[in-house]
Design a protein around this nucleic acid. Structure first.
Lengths: 214, 214, 214, 214
DNA sequence: CATGAATGAGTGTTCATTCAT
DNA sequence: AATGAATGAACACTCATTCAT
């Protein structure tokens, strides 16, 4: 949402007078996105080993040289891809928290689980690949963890009376964040065939609610 | 030429008595272990990019050629490494389940969490690398998931009366397995600096117990 | 062909009115000098491999495109650099010859050696690099040779009586030119540590004088 | 097949004294020579720019990988080429000095000039390229200078009475070395068209003799 | 004329894999 | 079975050059 605000303000400034240098920035973003999308496409259709810088350039419709204007090396491309995903999830979580301020923690968690599971169900193959085959420093995952815990800390704090008073916000947000994240992943990507998504989701919710009420 | 002599004597022994082929199998295991240990050592000291088959061979004290006797290609080495870890965790879980047959589910879960957290705390750097930088098909993780769920299914089934009767074993073991696994990982590897291992562990236990009692 | 056109038009204009078009030409020379100086600067501070056209452009304060206005390709930049140096040396030699018309050949040679040694002593590192690492067709060195021999031919011819009459001007200027050039280089750049510049210079002079008197 | 022969002889030798490890070393030298010869061939037929590591490998009849077993990088190949030439010249000079121990200094110098001029006349194009287009640190040239001066120091010292007694060996060998080297080069490679090799050589000799007698 | 973003051919180099011994 | 020298396909990355603005 922070992003959204920035963009809108750009919009406003752009229509007045002293605009400058924005084209490059927009161009940059577009190229970066094109590159990351190309990586995704190749990843899904041809596998990790087919993701060579030259192939990415072709699929992205840019020249190899241009890729190196935006990424210092190949590894950085993968990092950016992970970051983009982590960012999207972070924003999803935060916007859900915001959208549920006036609802109970239970309702919030339900929506969170739904949102995350849906997000990952869209392209299970891709997310599985991202996690297993595409190398990535631990950094982006940790940043996401931090964001999740931050969101939960907020959600908990603003619901003081709903919960037992001697609850430790730090511990609680830690556990909540990891429960929600891993159960979402599991429900979307690692479900045993005998379990429907709906069943997995409702059971996950039961677990989180039980914890919140404990 | 030393080599040649060894080979010939093997030849001779092989064609004589009852015992058979065990030496080779032991040799095999030893070589495989040596290779995997070498990978771990290089991984920690020099990073993923230094893990080349030739370097592995040197560090493991075998020839590159020998590596290809036991692994079809490089990727298989990484898979074996992941499998070895998954296997160790699987055995840890199963032995804990067995060792706690006469204890309550709560006690079992507590010991499970302790065991897993300790196992990962021993070499956090390594496990972080394994998960982020060392490529691995989803297979071994899924096999581990299945084993965990199997263990939990067993543990739950044999404790029917302790739990509410209308509990769905399938759903329950799914959630338990993922909660225990992810909270252990988180406690050992992704804990926020403000949280001690002990605190993380106890909170994780609280969460699992709350779920079990719900 | 662009080049050719430019040259021809310069030719024509040059022979028609009194002054014209000088600003551009001055601009040109300035840019060319800026480029060559940039190359020298990079060469000394960062080594030959750092001399890329883009870097040269930045250091010279012009755009890459502009460089290509004055040089057909990268190699031409290096050639121009060598030519500039050869030209400076040629001019130094010729002006010394002129300045010593009324002196003996011995005095002339002494001043020649001094001048050349001093010229190269100023930036030994640079001249060493120019000769070893910066590629250059043999052309500019040969042009310089020719100029040196020409200067010596002149100097000898105008001093007929000072020398033995059956001296072969052609042979003599050939040997003189190469002796003076190589001994100057050696004295300035390849002197053994045990030899002072002064000693090297005086010994070089002795050698040339001995030859002249033979 | 050459290999086979070598091996057999090693075999024989191996059973006699302690000698070892020669096969590798001979093989090494052969490969190194093949690579350097390939560079020379490409240099002459196709120019410096055609000297790529892959092309060298093909022409040398080895794999690129093998080149990197003997040379750390491309630049090292060029250095080795220069070193090989410098070494050959050094040996030529030294053997000439040895072969002329009982002759006068004048005769020695004459033979030295002849030898060096002939050596460079054999492949003028190549030597011109080596000096102008093939990058090379100053090191090998300096090593050669040192060797030449050493040879001259020796030659002078052992001819004390032939020369004026107050002669400074250090200065003298410095000048001699550079005179002989540069005049040989000039006679072989940079002679003006109006001068025959013989004329250039005789004039060079005159100059050196004049210096020696001064 | 100047600019400098974009290009992409081409290079040095690595490293998984093989196979003669 | 073991070895490790040799292989060469394949890759990441650079940088001389162009051309639309």
């Amino acid at each position: 949402m922070l992003r959204k605000l920035q963009i809108s303000s750009d919009w406003i400034q752009a229509s007045v007078p002293p605009q400058r240098r924005k084209p490059q920035q927009r161009r940059s973003r577009e190229t970066v996105e094109a590159v990351l999308d190309a990586v995704v496409r190749i990843l899904k259709k041809e596998g990790v080993d087919a993701v060579t810088t030259n192939r990415v350039a072709v699929v992205a419709g840019v020249s190899v040289g241009s890729i190196y204007q935006y990424f210092p090396d190949k590894r950085a491309i993968f990092s950016a891809l992970h970051d983009r995903h982590a960012d999207a999830m972070g924003r999803l979580v935060e916007s859900t928290v915001v959208a549920n301020v006036s609802r109970t923690l239970g309702e919030l968690v339900g929506n969170l689980l739904s949102g995350l599971i849906d997000a990952h169900s869209g392209d299970q193959q891709l997310y599985a690949l991202l996690m297993t085959e595409v190398p990535h420093g631990a950094a982006s995952a940790q940043r996401l963890d931090a964001r999740l815990q931050g969101a939960f800390r907020l959600a908990i704090s603003s619901r003081g009376r709903e919960l037992s008073r001697d609850l430790d916000v730090e511990r609680c947000s830690f556990v909540l964040a990891h429960m929600v994240e891993s159960l979402s992943h599991a429900a979307a990507l690692n479900r045993p065939p005998s379990l429907s998504v709906a069943a997995a989701k409702s059971e996950a919710l039961r677990a989180v609610l039980a914890y919140l009420r404990s």
